[in-house]
Simulated assay, not measured.
Amino acid sequence: MSELNHELGIIALESSMELGNAIDKYIQNNRNCNESFLIPLDEIRFSNGEGKVKISESVRGKDIYILCDVGNYSCTYKMFGIENHKGPDEHFQDIKRTVGAIRGKAARITVIMPLLYESRQHRRKGRESLDCALALQELERLGVDEIITFDVHDPNIQNAIPLLSFENIYPTYDIVKAIICNEKSLELDKEKLLVISPDTGAMDRAIYYSSTLGVDVGLFYKRRDHSTIINGKNPIVQHEYMGRDVIGKDVLIVDDMIASGESVLDIAKELKKIGAKNVYVAATFAFFTEGFEKFNKAYEDGLITRIYSTNLSYIPQELYNSEWFEGVDLSELSARIINRLNHGRSIAKYMDATRIIQNLLNK
């Protein structure tokens, strides 16, 4: 694919409009042009809750990138006079509607879902659904050529679509850069910093962070009550720490997402009990499904120093205003990826950030 053959078109759904505008600006600057690459779109809802998508201009022969944040709970619509907030199901339906509205006229369709739809349910045990796999297969059947996501809960989910291009990007470099630039007192020294994995499932991520930063890694093991199920999962009975002594050290907890936050706050409390100095948290997605109050209290009590998370999924202004929260902007990285793909160039250098992280640390 060459730039001359396929004109770029970006369709930012309502859920990703802010990110889409920022990406558009970066690409305009990169190409020294003043013309927007965004394609106007109407997401229409009828009074009974049914919906449709209408594209306002031609997409024939274009290289189309559809942006959607399935985790954006701020998008609303009226149904029978009641205001409803869009959930992941409705956002995903709008992706399908958009592909349907394109009607096969585009040269190529790429769906960018930073938070992969239903990815938290990444494997099945017994009689339960596996919606993420079915959703990926549905996009493939609709004619989508490529799917791009960030820090997916379990990369093995791509095995559901073995013939479709599936790219999983990690925002490690941008998060590390934000931490280094903001935390002036943080020393990247083996004797002064530890990377912590909150559970066994996040261990690979923690090992990568610790390897690139040149520090050791520790692990918290979640002891669960497997005889009870609450909200679809076995409740955590206790967190047990395995690793080097943390007394007087700064610690960095790394994970893909923060949901209610109970787990990360329990771990922060345990780390403080055993002598940790400052507790930092880095997560690609921050949902805070039960609000910010408990985090405000944890910050006031000295349990956490700062939480870093990206703008790949919706972050309310109230969170940006919190002293303990620092947003990491991923619009430039997203723009670079779209720009290179549209030019038919490899994005391999964005798949492994080890070299550029080392360059950053050497500076």
Rank of each mutant, 00 (worst) to 15 (best):
E7H: 09
L8T: 02
M17W: 11
M17G: 06
K25L: 14
Y26Q: 09
N30P: 04
R31T: 07
R31N: 06
N32Q: 10
C33A: 05
N48Y: 14
E50S: 13
K52G: 11
I55L: 14
I55Y: 06
V70C: 02
V70P: 00
C75G: 08
G87H: 12
R97Y: 07
E118D: 08
G126V: 05
S129W: 03
C132Y: 04
A133G: 06
A135H: 05
L139E: 00
E140R: 15
E140V: 13
G143Y: 12
V144P: 07
E146H: 15
T149P: 08
V152P: 03
I157F: 02
P162G: 01
P162E: 00
L163E: 06
Y173I: 06
I180W: 10
S185N: 11
L186W: 13
Y208L: 14
Y209V: 09
V217F: 10
R223T: 10
D225V: 04
H226I: 03
I229L: 08
I236M: 08
Y241P: 03
R244C: 15
D255G: 05
A259N: 13
S263L: 03
K273W: 00
G275C: 04
Y280M: 00
T284A: 01
F287Q: 01
E290W: 10
F292R: 07
K294H: 11
K297W: 09
E300Y: 08
T305G: 02
R306G: 01
N311W: 03
Q317S: 02
N321E: 11
N321S: 12
E323N: 12
S334F: 11
S334M: 15
R336Q: 14
S346Q: 04
K349R: 15
D352K: 04
I356F: 14
